[in-house]
């Protein structure tokens, strides 16, 4: 459950997240993530999202349940 967020300053464009969760994350021409969708309530995608978050070497990816302004 939740919404993916990329910390654009931390992200160094490793691209691992897109390999793990290709339906949620695409890469731009320079290898930086473009969010396609949020896992929301899809349990399969939620699992992948969590795995992508854990795999990011820069800890630049977060999964949050609520975003403020």
């Amino acid at each position: 459950m939740g919404k993916l967020l990329v910390d654009a300053v931390r992200c160094k464009g490793h691209g691992i997240c897109a390999l793990i969760a290709p339906r949620l994350i695409d890469l731009d021409d320079w290898g930086f993530p473009v969010l396609l969708a949020s896992p929301d309530y899809d349990p399969e995608q939620s699992k992948l999202a969590k795995r992508a978050v854990a795999a990011c070497p820069e800890q630049a990816l977060r999964l949050v349940t609520e975003v403020g302004p």
């Binding site: 654009a8 300053v9 731009d28 021409d29 320079w30 930086f32």
Partner: peptide, 12 residues
């Protein structure tokens, strides 16, 4: 110069 899209994308 902090974020990928800005560093690589804008000059392009």
């Amino acid at each position: 110069g902090q974020c990928g899209p800005c560093i690589f994308g804008l000059p392009r």
